[in-house]
Design a binder for these strands. Structure first.
Length: 634
RNA sequence: GUCCCCGUAGCUCAGUUGGAUAGAGCAGCCGCCUUCUAAGCGGCAGGUCGUGCGUUCGAAUCGCACCGGGGACGCCA
């Protein structure tokens, strides 16, 4: 069954486009955007059209005359209050008001399973790259934003009917991992570590230590060679770093054994892998982020494809040698890739002069798999803003290689970087504990839940709300998730965000808990309505939109589909947050002004209950898109 | 040096892709709970939208140049 169009924006766009064409037949061949927006001043109009000013020059008439001509041709029947010269304001704004019966009819139509959201056409296959975890490294605040934003982006696309494939591109391969694996194996052999009880903290320490022992002294050696200190000095240095060199050689051997899947080494790597991924999936579960093992596609899964791919690039002349390394040049202007991703002076490095591969190699390989095998028409990388140049290089190289040309549409897949800023502390510097350590993500989430729990308990005591233990647990989790996620999602993702327990758990104003509170108020009304025996009549009640607050609530509800679309188009969850905040605000005003259960008549009561129910459904649906669950009571 | 991002109220942030008198929330002040939970509602006050040119009917939004902050720039990932 097709979804009935209830979005005022779309309806008005149609009617005003028709009116402009009727008023100015000469424009027949042109595409017309009637520039409809929600009314800037609510007293003047629900919506407005700003088309007259722009058209003025084209048709050679003063803007107000243009507006007058358009107004004369608008079909307002069954929809709008009559338009007249009085609807024209200022230089030529046309103010539009919906009639109360029309609003009621639109709301009734919206009160369907789709909630007025038509499925996107055409439906796309979209890959969303999110998470960004590395093997053997503790998850910290830096890993907070990608899953939260990425999951919301994935969910909004799913909500619109797209086929979304989440990809957790785990950094689980390469020399660094081999260094750690080698060190773990040595520690196990020395019996200072047991594989059975291995924790991510153990791995984190081993990673740092391995990094240190392998690199520090190798750097010293390099520097010595660089400054031509002579064979004697180098020999001395080499002697000093004998142990380190041994560790480094061990790491290289281990990497080879890993590539060959040598059983003993591979088993240790698997263990490291499972310990890391356990924490990763646990964190996602705690946060209600939909990322599980099935979404994992680690760098290791590309390992066998790299050499053939690089050979292919060389054979076709896409990659060329430069100073011993293999690169893809991206600095020619006027190419399809430079048009999309910019003229980039720095070439994309695909193979080191020692024959080793780099992260760009794997990333290009990932683009190829995502487009060629997974069928992605769009791939979204929810990654730190600092990776921008790297990603543009990868996108450019992939297009130049033809890897991002979709196999069936033959069009380049849309490769997008949904960049986000850093998480800063309240001092404006990278978020750390008071002692200056990085904060473990699991700890940070737990602290959020604990604080949410005490806040919920305090509030319930203050408001005389009694919750069962089960309710308390559920509510605390919901409030914690809402506080944490909403704080992250409600601002422009590209900007740095300030992390503050106090602010996100403040519960006032534009916060997650405020939205949850609006939902809970509605749930209370619905429960009481059922208790009072109104449960069977209201779902089919005729909707009436009379009071000002009722009208504002109705108008806000009708904007839901376009809020979702704007969010999906820009990949900016904060647009949806802003909408939901406005909706919760419109409901709160309505709640204050319009008694529901104590309405003047049964008809009005049932109409209002239905309005409440739709509001709740939209709020819960929108919060669901943000990955925020709603409690029953709070 | 080149490139990317950011600069809006005391603080934290929006600003629907160029529209009317730039909006919220904190913090401050003033009202509203014997009626569906006051985690709420209504109101007051608070601004040279970093600066300067330009584009046009119209600029926080687009262009250029500066200023300030952050970031990235070949063999780490």
């Amino acid at each position: 069954m097709p979804v009935q169009e209830t979005d005022p924006l779309a309806i008005l766009r149609d009617r005003f486009t028709a009116a402009v064409r009727a008023a100015f037949p000469l424009l027949a061949s042109e595409t017309i955007d009637p520039l409809i927006t929600p009314g800037k001043q609510a007293e003047l109009g629900d919506y407005q059209s700003n088309v007259a000013m722009g058209l003025s020059k084209k048709v050679g008439k003063p803007p107000r005359d243009v507006a007058k001509a358009i107004v004369g041709h608008v079909d307002a029947a069954g929809l709008l209050e009559p338009l007249s010269e009085a609807s024209i304001a200022g230089p030529g704004f046309i103010n539009i008001k919906f009639s109360a019966p029309a609003l009621a009819a639109l709301i009734s139509a919206m009160d369907a399973p789709s909630m007025g959201v038509p499925p996107a056409t055409p439906t796309q296959t979209v890959v969303v790259d999110l998470m960004g975890v590395n093997l053997a490294k503790q998850m910290h605040v830096g890993h907070l934003r990608s899953p939260i934003i990425g999951d919301a982006v994935a969910r909004v696309l799913e909500r619109l009917g797209h086929r979304v494939i989440r990809q957790n591109h785990v950094g689980d391969w390469g020399l660094n991992i081999a260094m750690t694996t080698a060190r773990i194996m040595r520690l196990v052999k020395e019996k200072s570590l047991s594989l059975e009880t291995l924790t991510l903290d153990d791995l984190d320490k081993a990673y740092a230590a391995a990094q240190k022992e392998c690199q520090r002294d190798m750097d010293g050696l390099k520097a010595a060679q660089h400054w031509l200190m002579g064979p004697k000095a180098i020999a001395e240095l080499e002697a000093q770093v004998e142990g380190a060199t041994a560790a480094f050689l061990d790491a290289r051997q281990t990497l080879l054994r890993l590539q060959a899947k040598e059983p003993e080494t591979y088993a240790v790597w698997r263990k490291i892998y499972s310990v890391t991924m356990k924490v990763c999936v646990d964190v996602c579960t705690m946060l209600n982020v939909n990322v599980t093992d099935e979404h994992t596609a680690g760098e290791s899964s590309y390992a066998d494809e790299l050499t053939p791919m690089v050979d292919d690039l060389v054979k076709r002349g896409v990659a060329v040698l430069d100073q011993g390394a293999l690169v893809v040049r991206l600095d020619e202007p006027g190419t399809p890739w430079s048009d999309r991703y910019g003229v980039i002076k720095e070439p994309c490095l695909i193979r080191k002069s020692d024959g080793g591969y780099l992260y760009a190699t794997t990333d290009v390989c990932a683009v190829r798999r995502r487009v060629q095998k997974l069928g992605a028409e769009r791939a979204i990388y929810v990654i730190d803003a600092r990776q921008n140049l790297h990603l543009r290089q990868v996108y450019g190289a992939s297009l130049k290689a033809g890897y991002s040309i979709h196999p069936t549409t033959k069009q380049p897949a849309l490769l997008e970087h949904a960049a986000f800023g850093s998480v800063l502390g309240e001092d404006g510097r990278p978020f750390k504990t008071r002692s200056g350590d990085t904060v473990k993500l699991a700890d940070l989430i737990q602290e959020t839940f604990d604080r949410a729990g005490s806040a919920v308990r305090a509030k319930c005591a203050e408001r005389n709300v009694s919750l069962t233990d089960a309710d308390l647990t559920q509510t605390s989790r919901c409030v914690g998730i809402a506080a944490l996620k909403y704080a992250d999602l409600s601002t422009d993702r590209v900007k740095d965000s300030m992390f503050s327990f106090d602010r996100m758990l403040a519960f006032e104003g534009n916060t997650g808990p405020y939205l949850l509170y609006a939902c809970v108020r509605i749930k209370n009304i619905l429960r009481k309505a059922a208790d009072e025996g109104a449960g069977s009549t209201w779902p089919s009640a005729a909707i009436a939109v009379q009071d000002h607050a009722e009208k504002q609530l109705a108008l806000t509800l009708l904007r839901y589909p376009s809020a979702l679309r704007a969010t999906a188009d820009a990949l900016e969850p904060h647009r949806l947050c802003g909408y939901l905040y406005e909706l919760a605000g419109a409901f709160s005003s309505f709640y204050d002004k319009c008694p529901v259960l104590a309405a003047d008549s049964t008809a009005m009561r049932d109409s209002r209950v239905r309005l409440c129910s739709l509001t709740l459904r939209v709020l819960e649906d929108g919060l669901g898109v943000l990955g925020i669950p709603v409690p029953e009571r709070m």
